[in-house]
């Protein structure tokens, strides 16, 4: 499944980040904590420490709390796209954060990670992130390239 391949390739990419929270599986990422940490590394002027502090990182046994985190992350990314990049993702199916929080759904997580990737390849330090991708295995690079191209066709 292509969507799941995107998810697992982007998890491989996310593993290059020095994050405090575990980030090696869809289950690890389903509470949004590691993803929020990644965003605050990628674009610290936008995903600030006060923003990160609003992401709940303890007692996340109730999946609804995970979804609350994921909604804040998705909202933040969409605001970044609009305010910083001046784009909206017309026609890109937004990730179903309920499916990620409740079932660690890899396909939906793949969509969310695709949006995180888009922040990384457009941020001020994009050179660092793109070069990291270029040093990864060819098949992972190819999937990431396809994921970027899909987003590029949906930007307006």
């Amino acid at each position: 499944n292509e969507r799941e391949q995107i998810c697992y390739s982007l998890i491989t990419w996310l593993e290059t980040f020095p994050l405090q929270s575990p980030h090696s599986s869809p289950s690890d990422l389903s509470d949004g904590v590691a993803i929020a940490q990644a965003l605050s590394l990628i674009a610290p002027n936008f995903f600030t420490q006060p923003w990160l502090a609003k992401i709940k990182s303890e007692d996340l046994s109730n999946w609804r709390l995970k979804v609350t985190n994921l909604k804040k992350i998705l909202k933040g990314i969409l605001e970044y796209n609009l305010e910083y990049l001046g784009v909206t993702m017309q026609g890109f199916q937004m990730p179903d954060v309920n499916a990620i929080g409740e079932h660690s759904d890899a396909q939906e997580l793949g969509r969310l990670l695709q949006l995180v990737l888009n922040v990384a390849i457009n941020c001020d330090n994009k050179q660092e992130y793109i070069q990291t991708i270029m040093s990864m295995e060819e098949d992972v690079q190819q999937i990431i390239k396809n994921a970027i191209q899909e987003l590029m066709t949906k930007e307006a």
Binding site: N122, C123, M134, E138, Q141
Partner: peptide, 27 residues
């Protein structure tokens, strides 16, 4: 000599793609 041009190999095409991203203006 039948060798593929660098830009036509998978590696070359990937490098071209990511280099084109690098050359885009930040932000």
């Amino acid at each position: 000599d039948g060798k593929p041009q660098a830009g036509n190999t998978t590696e070359g095409m990937l490098a071209n793609f990511f280099n084109s991203l690098l050359s885009k203006t930040p932000g």
